[in-house]
Amino acid sequence: MTLDEIKDILDAETLSAHCDGNTPVERAYCADLMSDVLCFSFTNSLLITHLTNAQVIRTADVANIKAIVFCQGKKPPRETVVLAEGKKIPMLVTGYSMFDSCGKLYEKGLRGKSESDT
């Protein structure tokens, strides 16, 4: 699924100046605890979270997260946006709750786990 498709499904707004809508994401992961992301997420996943602090971007960077969706209309502060642009991690914000955001993406075929995962 591409970022443009995700944006449409979630009626989301792009927060990054340089966001290539054709960027593909392979899987999705939703979490607010950064150790959870670091421990269990897969490379090139989409991260869906309620948190907008700078640590989310740093976590996404070390865990090789492809893009971030901030749910429930939570807009990140300026320092988060600046940091993400520096690390070239695209960000979207959606008004949907985390539950409905995940549900809508799942319904359209995005998965958190694939057959090859252990």
């Binding site: 939703c30 269990f40 995940c102 549900g103 799942y106 319904e107 998965r111 958190g112 786990k113």
Partner: peptide
Amino acid sequence: PAFEVVGRLYE
């Protein structure tokens, strides 16, 4: 993982 759980419940 949470995403899978939510996806299945949503369905």
